[in-house]
Structure formats: C-alpha cells, structure tokens
C-alpha cells in the first residue's frame, strides 16, 4: 500500500517538475541570465559601444567605489593638494573639523557616495510625505459624499502622467524666472524676487525633487490605502460606537491595526521604487546632482564605463535587497 502511494507521489513529483520546466527556463532567460551577465561584467573593464578588448579586473571596480581616505587639511591648502593621487586619485567628498583642525574625507568616486546619500534622503522624505498625504486623502475619499466617484478619478490624474512628461511640465513650473509659474506665484505673494533657481541652487534641488515626487505619487499611496480602508468591516465601527469609543479611539484601535497589511505593502512598493528613482533626477537636475540610478546611467552612457556601471548596478541591487528584507522583518509581512 505505502509502496504504491510512494510511487504515485514520485510520479506526481516528476510530472510537477516537468511542468515547471518552461517557467524555470523563462525565469533563467529573462531574470537570471541578464543578472549574471551584469555581475560578470562588473569584474571587467568593458567599454560601452567600444571595440577594444575587455580585460578581467577582479574586484577593482568595487574597491574603487568604496575607497575612502581621511586627511588633515591645513588652512592654506586646497583639497586637491592634500589628497593622494597614486595609484588612484581621491577627490573631495566632504570636510569636517574636530579640535580646531580641518579634516577632509576623500573618495575615488565621491559622486557615487553622494548619489547614495541623495537617494536615501529623497526616499525617506518622499515616502513619508506621500504616506501622510495619501492617508489623509484616502480617509476623505472613503467617507460618503456627493461626487465621490469623480473625486477618486481626478485624484489619480498626476499618477497617470508619464514621469518624464510630468518632469518636463515641472521644469517649466520651476523655471528660475517669472516665466515659471511657481516664481510668478511666489513673487505675487511677496516671497523671493521671482528669480529663485529651484533646480540649480544646491539647497533647493532635493526639496524641489521631493515636492514633484510627492505631487506625482501621493495618488498611488492614497489608492492603496483606500483599498485597505474598504476592507475594514463597518460592524466593527458600530460595535465600537456602542461600547462608547470616540472617533480618535476608533482610528487607533480599529482602522490603523487593520490597515497594517495594506500599509506595509504600499510602503514597500514606494520605498523600493523611490530607491530606483531615475526619470526625475535625469530630467530635472541632469549632471548636477545624481540619484543612484542616474549616476549609474551617467557612468554607463556618458563615460562608457560599462564595467564600473555594472558594479554600481550590483551595489544598487544589494542596497535595495537589504531595504526589502528590513521592511519584511519589521512589518512582519511574512506572517500575514
């Protein structure tokens, strides 16, 4: 008896494997092969659109990305006079001072380190604000009022516009003279002189980019949260009301806990997408300030350093992977 069922089980198992072959093949072709190719290229000095011979360089691309050095900076000297130039040249990343002494941190690819910092700051603020505003909008749209359907459709408009197109629109809105809407508007209110350079002033670049991203992606957040809100059964609120719980109590005891799974999914979605941000940075600030992806693009296409760019891709992949695992662990997505 057990012999027969065991045979049957084996048969079924081998059939299952056979049926999985197409799926596995497709996965190998569309996911694992390109990824493996990128990892392989990251160990070479391959040139993009080049005809030169490619050489194997080992971990050279990776070590140069993360090489850092700290040197003391005398008052009468410039950074480039202090930092080492052999075998690899270090460029200024940042300076700081302790005990009245200036120190300088040098990096072989300071733009890359800055790109990581830019991307993380951008992601943190953009996702935080999008969640906040998305929540508020979802709560409003979830209540019953006339024209709710129309409201929901209108709300989604910014998200429906292609990123590059909306970035171009914002480029005009942010134009650094009164040709631009925002400068016009602010100068009418008496703020600024109508000449604020939102996209070239280094202190305003990230806030401007975050603003554009919040404008664009809040609807998406609102939509996901709204879907979660509609899953909360009305009876719970009724029961709470009977037990004498107020609106605020209802929100924190019923809405928030029941919303956690959809909120977690929305947060993961947005964080991972924000870490990959490319279009906004590329269109609005180009070669002035990089995100991880736009720096990667510059190294690949602008500098044609395909080996280095592949190493950057792998690093981005690992960073995003770490974020994904962190989220899953802290929000307990696996258990749901």
């Amino acid at each position: 008896m057990s012999q027969i069922s065991n045979n049957l089980f084996k048969k079924e198992q081998s059939l299952a494997y056979k049926m999985l072959i197409p799926t596995i093949l497709i996965l190998v072709i569309i996911a694992i092969y390109p990824l493996g190719q990128v990892v392989y290229t990251s160990f070479t000095n391959r040139v993009f659109a080049g005809v030169e011979e490619t050489e194997f360089v080992g971990l050279d691309n990776y070590t140069s990305l993360f090489s850092l050095t700290i040197k003391e900076l005398p008052k009468d000297k410039y950074a480039f006079e202090v930092l080492p130039r052999e075998p690899k040249r270090y460029k200024e990343l940042t300076t700081f001072s302790i005990f009245n002494k200036q120190y300088i941190i040098g990096s072989v690819h300071p733009n890359f380190i800055e790109a990581i910092i830019n991307t993380i700051i951008f992601t943190f603020f953009a996702v935080f604000l999008e969640t906040l505003f998305g929540f508020i909008i979802a709560l409003v749209v979830n209540s019953k009022f006339i024209g709710r359907g129309v409201m929901r459709a209108i709300m989604l408009l910014p998200w429906a516009v292609i990123t590059v197109v909306s970035a171009r629109i914002w480029e005009w809105i942010l134009f650094p003279s009164r040709i631009g809407f925002l400068n016009m508007f602010l100068s009418k209110l008496g703020i600024g002189n109508g000449q604020i350079s939102f996209l070239t002033d280094s202190g305003l670049q990230l806030p401007s980019l975050i603003m554009v991203d919040v404008w664009k992606t809040t609807p998406f957040m609102a939509l996901l949260i709204l879907a979660g809100l509609q899953l909360v059964p009305n009876e719970l609120y009724e029961a709470a009301r009977v037990d004498g719980a107020g609106r605020v109590k209802q929100f924190f005891s019923i809405t928030l806990p029941l919303l956690k799974p959809s909120l977690a999914v929305a947060l993961i979605f947005r964080t991972l997408a924000s870490l990959r941000v490319f279009g906004l940075f590329q269109v609005l600030v180009g070669q002035q300030r990089y995100s991880m992806s736009s720096y990667n693009y510059y190294q690949l296409i602008g500098n044609r350093a395909m080996g280095l760019a592949s190493a950057i891709s792998v690093v981005i992949f690992i960073i995003i992977f770490i974020f994904a695992v962190m989220y899953m662990k802290t929000l307990g997505v696996e258990d749901e």
Binding site: F175, P176, S177, I179, Q195, I196, S197, L199, T200
Partner: peptide
C-alpha cells in the same frame, strides 16, 4: 550671475536663453 545675467543662467541652454 545675478548681476548682469539672471541667476537662472546656470540652468539655461541655447533655446531657453533665446526665448528670453
């Protein structure tokens, strides 16, 4: 920059400067 040329000049290209 900011004196005889607009602060915006650090964001101008051929066509945008021609418009002004």
């Amino acid at each position: 920059v900011g004196k005889i040329s607009p602060p915006a000049v650090t964001g101008l290209q051929e066509e945008s400067s021609r418009h002004i």
